[in-house]
Nucleic acid binder design. Sequence first.
DNA 1: CCAATACAGGACTATTATAGTACCATTTTT
DNA 2: AAAAATGGTACTATAATAGTCCTGTATTGG
Lengths: 151, 151
Amino acid sequence: MIRIGKLTDYGILIMTYLARDPERLHAAQEIAQAVGIALPTANKLLKMLARGGLLDSQRGTKGGYALSRQPEAITMVDIIGALEGPVGLTDCGTAKQPGNCQRERSCSVKANWQRISQAVNDALAGVTLAEMTVPSQPIRIFARPLAQPVT
Amino acid sequence: MIRIGKLTDYGILIMTYLARDPERLHAAQEIAQAVGIALPTANKLLKMLARGGLLDSQRGTKGGYALSRQPEAITMVDIIGALEGPVGLTDCGTAKQPGNCQRERSCSVKANWQRISQAVNDALAGVTLAEMTVPSQPIRIFARPLAQPVT
DNA sequence: CCAATACAGGACTATTATAGTACCATTTTT
DNA sequence: AAAAATGGTACTATAATAGTCCTGTATTGG
């Protein structure tokens, strides 16, 4: 079904929760309770998100986590990438390539797959965390394609 | 990694192989050998593809499989849908909804997820089987968004 | 009319990836 | 110094996937 993992789904909920109060420092226990997942699971995800550079963390008694960037500057690709690695639909798309792929006609398919993966990647990169917090924001993934005006 | 199953990858190779000779009838054994997968696996996939309406089949000694439609009229969504069900990145996106999703803020996320799934779906629907057979056809998924001129 | 071939459908097993948990170390505050 | 909270890693259990096999049905050819 071309699905993302359940943990990634949780991770996005966590990020969404943090995006609603970006300034304050949130402890893992508070986050776990707010999102509705077990504490060990929240811990694991928070570590991965911090390791991926999406969260700043502070240890100690009054420690916790907070977004490292503005919610507008964090996209779905960032979160998914931090939790599941680079986006690629097939094994050909990413780094390694399986054994029966070196035939000449399969290679043509491989090239096309990489483009499709890129298209999916761009679709996910077009949605920011800030947009996810808003109930029914009109997402403009296709309306404003990949040629994002970085001007 | 937002990946499709290995079987689906094989399935697309099978469809690509059949698209190169759409008129003739191809036996499962021939297909398995050409694509480079085990016969039982090929059988399974061919059944699913035929059941999904993408292949016409004929039984008997001179039986086999052939595309039911032109390669231009079959998209990646058709194949993936036949082999893995409807495209949806989260459990929220498709039919059923998990237990801890009924909170008010999660619902906002859910609505956004459905749109993202739709975007991915459209990206996959923009690539036809005919394009997959060509080595380096420029795919225009984002160039021609979802507002497909059905005129 | 019988035998061989090939698809149809489903059930079953094995493998692999994911999810989830627990432990120990390190840092900061009181 | 003690408590609280994150950092890192290893481990176990669960679930999804991959792969195989068996029985039934239709078609061709002798």
